[in-house]
């Protein structure tokens, strides 16, 4: 059976990639572990953006805001003596979800260009709000000199342990996203991207579905922020700078929006390119810019599109 075979192949590839990623710490190079950690975290963040962008058709230029809310919640709790995973993580995810609820409830009243701009404006608001937190470092941000703990002596201070947590989080997020996209909710979201007016006329209150999707996406990005704060040990407004939102958007497009693996590939590509090219020249952006323009003009579907061109994807 052809269908079963492909199904199996897909699972095989997934398992293979996960094992490969799990093997990275055995290379014994802390540098690679750190780089891979960063890639996976941004992969998670890009994946969360793709839920609203690629599946829901909502072009948000303010996604870094949720990354920032997650990271700042982690940092602020740390500075108030709270390091327990069991408190910090739900709080950070809850805060970014709440932020997404407020931002989404207002932004989703608009559409098109106005939506792009209002999400950008909200991200700027959060940027300046965080930069204005004088008690937590203001413009300079704050350090977090030890990581969250699970309790019972189990902490994340070991980079390898943190790496496995990050990898696990991404695998779980990937699986949950798969379920979500294929579920009834996911079908509604994809329908809205394709033709929102038609969805309304067959009876869907589209605003509610978009809002819930926006909140899920924001909360997931907030979780990426938690992980990033733990990895970097440093939280600053630079996390929320609008160019960061742009970069996350680039990751999704580069990898292939509307697919789950695409954003992760995109994050890997962008961060690896940065790592490699910046070894040759500090001016690597001079190549990245035109390359991106070419991708936009000619590379529909990003990397995933390139790999599956001509094949119908259901």
């Amino acid at each position: 059976m052809k269908g079963d075979f492909r199904f199996g192949k897909r699972h095989g590839a997934f398992l293979f990639t996960a094992l490969l990623l799990a093997a990275i710490p055995f290379m014994g190079e802390p540098f690679y572990v750190r780089l891979a950690s960063r890639i996976l975290i941004y992969g998670l963040c890009a994946l969360s953006l793709d839920l609203i962008l690629g599946y829901g058709g909502m072009v948000s230029l303010g996604h870094a805001a949720f990354l920032g809310v997650g990271a700042y919640t982690t940092g602020i709790l740390f500075h108030n003596g709270v390091q327990s995973v069991w408190i910090v993580w739900p709080a950070a995810v809850g805060m970014s979800g709440a932020a997404a609820l407020v931002i989404g409830a207002i932004s989703l009243r608009t559409a098109g260009v106005y939506f792009i701009m209002i999400t950008l404006a909200f991200a700027q608001m959060i940027f300046y709000f965080c930069a204005g937190l004088e008690a937590y470092g203001g413009d300079d941000g704050m350090a977090m000199w030890s990581r969250n703990t699970f309790g019972g002596g189990l902490d994340l201070d070991s980079p390898v342990r943190l790496y496995y947590i990050i990898l696990g989080a991404l695998v779980v997020a990937f699986y949950l996203s798969r379920r979500l996209v294929d579920s009834r909710f996911g079908r509604v979201i994809r329908g809205i991207r394709e033709n929102e007016g038609r969805m309304r006329s067959i009876g869907y209150p589209t605003f509610q579905y978009k809002l819930v999707c926006f909140v899920i996406s924001g909360a997931a990005a907030g979780f990426a922020g938690v992980l990033l704060a733990n990895l970097n040990g440093y939280i600053s407004p630079a996390l929320i700078h609008w160019t960061r939102s742009g970069e996350i958007l680039v990751m999704v497009i580069l990898g292939g929006m509307g697919t789950l693996i695409g954003p992760i590939l995109g994050a890997a590509c962008l961060l690896l390119a940065e790592e490699i090219l910046s070894g040759f020249t500090q001016h690597w952006m001079i190549f990245l810019g035109p390359l991106l323009i070419l991708v936009v003009l000619f590379g529909r579907g990003g990397l995933v599109g390139l790999a599956t061109r001509g094949r119908y994807r259901g």
């Binding site: 742009g246 690597w284 990245l288 810019g289 035109p290 936009v296 003009l297």
Partner: peptide, 18 residues
Amino acid sequence: HLDQVLATFAMILFFNEL
């Protein structure tokens, strides 16, 4: 609009570096 945002964002990166 998404393509336009991306392409012109890429142009910012390019001009800053230039």
